[in-house]
Design a protein around this nucleic acid. Sequence first.
RNA 1: GCCAGGAUGGCCGAACGGUAAGGCGCACGCCUGGAAAGCGUGUUCCCUUUGGGAUUCUGGGUUCAAAUCCCAGUCCUGGCGCCA
Length: 459
Amino acid sequence: MIDRTYLRENPDEVRDALENRGADVDLDAVLEIDERWRELKARGDELRHERNRITERIGELVAEGKQDEKDEAIEQSKELKAEIEAVEAEAAELQDELEEHMLEIPQIPHESVPPGVDERHNVEDRRWGFDDLREGPAEVTPHYELGEELDIIDEARGAKTTGSGFYFLKGDGARLEHALIQFMLDVHREQGYVDLFPPVPINSASMRGTGQLPKFADDAYRIGDSNDEAYDDDDLWLCPTAEVPVTNMYADDILLQDDLPLKHQAYTPNFRREAGEHGTETRGIVRVHQFNKVELVNFVEPENSYDRLEELLGEAEEVLRRLELPYRVLELCTGDLGFKAAKQIDLEVWAPADDMDDGPEQGGRWLEVSTASNFEDFQARRAGLRYRPERHESAEYLHTLNASGLAIPRVMVAILEYYQNEDGTVTIPEALRPYMNGQEVIEGHEKVGEAALGAGERE
RNA sequence: GCCAGGAUGGCCGAACGGUAAGGCGCACGCCUGGAAAGCGUGUUCCCUUUGGGAUUCUGGGUUCAAAUCCCAGUCCUGGCGCCA
């Protein structure tokens, strides 16, 4: 949430900033409601002041035993009460309306964000790992075909137990998943992160704290009711990213300056509806309804947040470097920024199998595996995340940042495609072998069931 | 799930129908050669800031007046029950 006072005092700056990101917000309506609210608030305060004086007087009159004057005062007070109720009821309505609007105004982009309309104007910073590429097969098999051949990814049976967009990992596939999780957690622990294992159901208040609600209710899985129904603060949703429970963990707390920077990592499953996302670009496990990821969340002092953003990006990159997976770094332009972010930097790994138009010269495509974001005080204001600066009397909003470290299915896609061998096996990246009991190659499994027999896939 | 008790400022903690003590911490000032101690002031949010309003977990109610009484809810503690 942006600062209401700032909006009131700098409407043109806010208007320009929102225009740059292509946001459609009726600022005039908001400013007008704010204006009307302030008038009513002042009127209500006045009336209350008057009543407080009378009530105080009643106490004195009771003590002095002045019956008649007391009765008269009580009569006055009753009259005021009705008037106050009317004024304040209207003010409260406007206040709610104002709050509703404020929750839907996106964050103001940082001045360093490149201007642009959409993803075409994102700016590539650099690439890593392309100078010394690994020798792969002439024709790389896409992960969704390979996963099926090796019988390590089973999408069909996932659809059977749950629905499309859910999948089973089996044997070495499941093992690779576990290995990636443990490996990532170890890397980040070295970087000073403290592990958390959060609850998976999340209440609406927390979802609003990080910015998922109210605008993006359709993206989340709601527990126990339809997404279309009205929800209460304590209604539950399935965790869409560990950012939500971890950031809200300190909601309404005041942290000590010594606590900062506070760095948490959390591995959780993530649930996303991804409505209407189907096609070649999303085949396989690139876009699914449930996936696991290690999330990095930082709580920092405002003056350090942009330095931290660079460091945070480096901490996520470290995972790809150790896995020796080629990738690129992309600065998002104003038009492609997420709702709550002031600045975002994407990390995209190279998946060589499917040639896409916007992929690199070597063929294949880019897969976003992490976005390092600085939210500044946007989430802090929503969730009530504060700290007390030294030599400061009052608590202030801190800055929050996060990045995936990393999204596991897409890293798995990159491994299955980039580390693929001519014979259809997959070499396990060296960094992961200690987590797989020294295993060096994924050779796959014999398939199970009569369908496999009929297809000639087993004897 | 049942019963009992509880929730007050950054923290601790009093007040139990008449408008929120006190202590700790922190900030600023006085004092001091300097520090400690001591003393003073300040230390939630909102507004149109020499002023005013709101705020005792949340939401309702009773009353001229609610931290205080009543109802509902959330969370915490203890006991009982159930349970992998």
